Amino acid sequence: MTTPPQSRPRPLPQKIIGILGGMSDQATAEYYRLLNEGLNARYGGWDNGEIVIVSVNFGNIQHFVRQGEWESAERYLSGKVDALERAGADVILCMSNTMHRVVEPIMAARSTPFIHIADPTGEAIRAAGLTQVALLGTLATMRSETLRRRFQDRFGITLLTPDEADQTTVDRIIFDELVRRDLRPESKAEYLRIVDGLRGQGAQGVILGCTEIFLLIGQDDRPDFPVFDTTGLHVAAAVAFATEETGAEA
């Protein structure tokens, strides 16, 4: 049974959610908002989350990604994970699909729990009975063989990606517009055109594989075509983890 807010011990024992943020500031703000909304929905009353954010300089991140300096990115983010662990994080989230490329191996060497953004997405797709879905994201995400293997090996899911020209378009809109919350109707139309093209190639749904894409398109834009928002699914997994032993769930 759910414990009534007035009957809970104070301060309420909670798991601390650690966010590796700043990639971008827009996505980080949405994660904070959505986590607290989700936790309040579980707890009720005035309770929400205990959250630690270590926010990086996005200028460094975009440089590492666009120049392919992945070793430098790993060193940089490893120090930020250190800071989250020193702050007492009980679980760590990297709120960038792209930077899982370096954060996944960082976390593999540590004991702090880590929720990989692909896993709740893969679970949702498998639960929907789908086996072939489209993927939108940065160039690094759409071209990641490691990500393809994770979806295939863990969930039996094949990823379809746009052609090279459309990949460049998707990436440009992310870096030049969405990370600044510059939401343009013409860019939305481009994304939906690309989604429709992938649907025509056999995609059974689409993964919004960048944590800003949901700001531009979502399920309401294609009601009859499953849309898997990695931001929302990642947040939901973190809320479930954080409330697992608090009596917040019915």
Rank of each mutant, 00 (worst) to 15 (best):
T3N: 01
S7W: 01
P11Y: 09
K15P: 04
I19K: 10
G21P: 05
M23A: 02
T28D: 03
Y31M: 02
L35T: 07
E37F: 14
A41S: 05
R42W: 00
W46S: 11
S55L: 01
I61D: 08
I61K: 01
F64L: 09
Q67C: 15
G68Q: 15
G68C: 15
W70T: 12
E74D: 07
R75G: 09
G79A: 11
A83P: 00
A83W: 13
L84G: 10
R86W: 07
A87C: 15
A87M: 12
G88C: 10
C94V: 13
N97E: 07
M99R: 11
R101K: 15
E104M: 15
P105F: 13
I106H: 07
I106S: 03
I106P: 05
A109L: 12
A109W: 14
A127S: 14
G129C: 13
L130I: 06
Q132P: 01
A134Y: 00
G137A: 06
M142G: 05
M142P: 06
R143E: 05
E145H: 10
R148F: 04
Q152P: 01
Q152T: 01
D153K: 11
R154P: 08
L159Y: 01
T161V: 13
D166T: 06
Q167I: 03
Q167F: 07
V170W: 04
D171Y: 03
R181S: 09
R181Y: 06
L183Y: 09
R184K: 12
R184Y: 05
S187E: 00
E190A: 14
L192F: 04
R193I: 00
I194S: 03
V195M: 05
L198S: 02
R199W: 01
Q201A: 02
A203F: 09
L208Y: 11
C210L: 06
C210D: 08
T211F: 13
I213R: 04
I213P: 02
I213K: 02
F214V: 01
L215S: 01
D220P: 00
D221K: 09
P223Q: 02
P226I: 10
T230M: 04
V235Y: 08
V235W: 01
A236G: 02
A236I: 11
A237D: 08
A238K: 10
A238C: 08
A248S: 11
A248D: 07
E249W: 12
E249L: 07
